[in-house]
Computed example of a mutant assay.
Amino acid sequence: MTHGVIGTGSMGRILVEAWIRSGKLQPSELLLSNRTRAKAERLADEFPGLRVAADNREVARKSDCFFLCVKPGEFRKVLEEIRDVVREEQIVVSITSPVMVRDLEEWLPAKVAKVIPSITNAVCSGNSLFIPGSRLNREDREQLWDLFSAISRPLLVDEEHTRIASDLACCGPAFLANLMEQMADAAVEETDLPREAAVSLVTRMAQGLGRLLTEGNFTLKSLQERVAVPGGITREGLHLLERDTGTLFHDLFRLTHDKYHEDINKVQQSLFPEMEKKV
């Protein structure tokens, strides 16, 4: 079975590398294309046997299942390029959140799904978000679920929850990394602790925290209760965080949702220019 990947940018590359390194797919089972061919060729150099197609049409024509790993603004061009070679029995998967499943089903005769990966999938961890289309049968769903189970824990979500689920699973690593970096920087500025030590401490802390939550039978709440004894330093720190973070994450999610709806409208105006709006 041939799995195609159109677009070998950041997330396309992560998927290819994760599937190969996990042993789920052999390089020879993958066929790649990219707007800048050299990018796909560099990836093929790392994994002998991995094939690079002449263009996107070749990927669509020769794959049983292929993944659209392109930016929202590039979708119309790619869909126009491959539309007449896509077949009903194929599975086509978009990893781009503001591209609606129903819109892809209008453009393509294939069985469509949306699966949103996370950078955490690079180490076969975290979630991937699974939004099946109306044409997928049980076998198709199981096939995709099995493929992503090798590099993540797939989670079935309603498309209306794509943005908030992506904020947590996909944007979350960057958000938390930013907070951790600020924490380390503040430690350096307030004391004479070397920055290298501060970064190492928060990084190893995060690694251990993840294991406590996934392997140590702790919940977010029970972990705080275990560390923060009444009257202790951690408890005082938590009170400060609860007070000063306030509406931070509410504001963050409102911002990401506003940008998401803006991106949806742009994509739909591109895919269906004859319609003023399609929501």
Rank of each mutant, 00 (worst) to 15 (best):
M1N: 11
G7A: 10
T8S: 09
G12D: 13
V16Y: 10
A18M: 08
L25G: 04
S33V: 01
R35N: 05
E46V: 09
G49R: 03
D55N: 15
A60W: 00
A60I: 05
R61D: 15
F66P: 02
C69F: 05
V70Q: 11
E74K: 09
K77Y: 12
E80Y: 08
I82F: 06
D84S: 13
V85E: 15
E88I: 02
E89W: 01
V92Y: 10
V93N: 07
S94G: 11
P98L: 10
P98Q: 08
V101L: 07
D103R: 00
E106N: 05
L108M: 03
L108Y: 03
A113T: 09
N121Y: 06
S125D: 15
S128H: 06
E139D: 11
F148E: 08
A150N: 13
R153F: 01
V157Q: 07
V157L: 14
E160V: 15
T162Y: 00
L168S: 07
A169W: 03
G172A: 06
A174M: 08
L176C: 09
L179G: 02
M183L: 15
D185N: 09
A187F: 04
V188E: 14
V188D: 04
L193A: 01
E196M: 01
A198P: 01
A198W: 00
V199A: 04
Q207P: 00
R211Q: 13
F218W: 07
T219N: 06
S222L: 04
A228K: 05
G232V: 09
L240D: 03
T247A: 11
T247N: 14
T256E: 01
E262M: 07
D263A: 14
N265M: 10
V267D: 13
Q268G: 11
E276L: 12
K278D: 04
